[in-house]
Design a protein around this nucleic acid. Structure first.
Lengths: 144, 144
DNA sequence: TCCATTTCTTACCTTTGGGTGTGTATGGCA
DNA sequence: TGCCATACACACCCAAAGGTAAGAAATGGA
């Protein structure tokens, strides 16, 4: 509390800000597109999808139980759900071999591969800055 | 149902698969790192963080209400929460100007900028393949 | 006869995410 | 006097996410 509060009307800073606010962002990209993209991101950028995507990318075709045991922590229910969604979005294919007991395997489509590639930068970032983030957190937590 | 079920023991395909399963993936990347990265991804790849990150990247420093009104659909609670988390992770800075009424603004740190850059590929992917995904979904839904 | 096997589905229940609404501090202004 | 603005915190509540567990289906083999 070293600084006493200042009156709000000395601050043309604030008036300027308000003027800025009043003016709509002039040429936003088509807000309809914007919404769709945000929506798509929302669904794709979910944890399980990301992990399964990465797994399929690096290991190639895999069957249900293989994925299940490699994706650490995923429940069978979530895996089914995630795979269905990926199939629906055209990211993966599902192939059923009519044998008994059932044999189903999953692979990425070209679209899935391209998404995986798009996420590549993020994975690299995460690996690279892991420590930085951990430190930042620690600093934040101890100073708060 | 054109194909009758086959016995499971004619399938050396399956035996091969089992053998493959038994053999652990020989040199996985350090599973400890793997877990941490996955964890980090899980927290960063959340919808609101992504949207706020993108906003701050493209518009620069913004104050609370500015963000709130641009991020379409975010509640004040979620915005506070998201910003706190980003601050904690070292992605954004929070600057309080001691005037009344309060004036607080947020900006990305270099770390935040780098993350945003890392996500760039994903945004591009989403914009580019939006239609493809929509079509895939439609096909899936009508055929199911 | 009964079991093992694989990929699910469904039902049930707990946990979390997230919305709403209210309170707070402060000093101009009507 | 009382209301406004701003950036929250906090409490309450509902809905959705996600875990657990059971069952189904088919058939060769013990």
């Amino acid at each position: 509390m070293e600084n006493p509060l200042k009156s709000r009307f000395e601050t043309d800073e604030i008036l300027a800000a308000q003027a800025y606010l009043a003016a709509e962002p002039p040429a936003d990209i088509d807000p309809r597109i914007e919404r769709l993209v945000n929506d798509l991101i929302g669904r794709i950028a979910d944890k399980w999808t990301l992990l399964v995507l990465e797994l399929l990318e690096e290991k190639g075709t895999q069957r249900f139980t293989q994925i299940a045991r490699q994706v650490d922590g995923i429940s069978q229910k979530m895996l089914t759900q995630t795979l269905r969604q990926m199939e629906r979005d055209g990211l993966a294919t599902r192939t059923v071999h009519p044998v008994v007991p059932p044999h189903v395997d999953y692979a990425l489509t070209p679209l899935g591969n391209s998404l995986s590639a798009a996420f590549c930068g993020v994975w690299i970032w995460a690996e690279k800055h892991l420590d930085t983030v951990e430190q930042a957190r620690h600093r934040f937590d101890t100073r708060a």
